[in-house]
Design a protein around this nucleic acid. Structure first.
Length: 171
DNA sequence: AAAGTGATCATG
DNA sequence: ATGATCACTTTG
């Protein structure tokens, strides 16, 4: 049985959420009514201002403001001038944590999945609990996964670079 | 290996 | 206003 994730599912720390989101279904309804669902296969956790890899590590700015909202909304930004990146904000209000969705079945890679599901910055701040356009469902599947260092964070402290906060579902 | 692409933020 | 940087992908 399939259920949409609720506030409670998003009100947890990003590392726990990043693991729990593996196997869940990222769902997108387009303007023409088409609904797409893809299983999440890879995630990364970004954890507060003290995490030097996290966009919010320099504090609240116009871009990172959304990360300070209560868990359950989307944080979408443009990377390298061409790739839209989808994150799910988690945790409590005032604490900037988010899970980067790095891959879904059939679209591995953070820029590829957003392209496949037509996700862009118009969905920034979208509330995944109530949205008709973007949400996540779970059928209870909890795939096994591996944990490894996060990608593309050479700017972070060596200690934060070493943290195994990237989670990849097996098969 | 390196380009391509434009928003973002710190600096002036 | 300017410039460095960037949670990536594709092409050679």
């Amino acid at each position: 049985m399939m259920r949409r994730l609720t506030d409670a599912d998003y009100s947890i720390d990003a590392v726990t959420a990043a693991k729990a989101l593996l196997g869940a279904w990222l769902c997108r309804r387009l303007n023409d009514g088409t609904v797409m669902r893809r299983r999440i296969t890879e995630t990364e956790a970004y954890c507060g201002e003290e995490d030097t890899a996290c966009h919010a590590h320099k504090g609240r700015t116009p871009r990172t403001d959304v990360m300070y909202s209560p868990g359950g909304c989307a944080y979408v930004y443009l990377c390298y001038g061409m790739h839209e990146m989808l994150n799910v904000v988690t945790g409590r209000e005032g604490r900037p944590e988010a899970v980067l969705i790095r891959g879904v079945e059939g679209a591995e890679g953070p820029g590829r999945l957003t392209k496949a599901l037509h996700i862009d910055r118009s969905l920034n701040r979208e509330d995944l609990v109530s949205s008709r356009r973007l949400w996540i469902e779970s059928d209870g599947a909890r795939p096994k996964f591996t944990a490894s260092p996060r990608i593309g964070i050479a700017y972070a402290s060596p200690r934060d670079q070493r943290r195994k906060w990237r989670f990849t579902a097996i098969q």
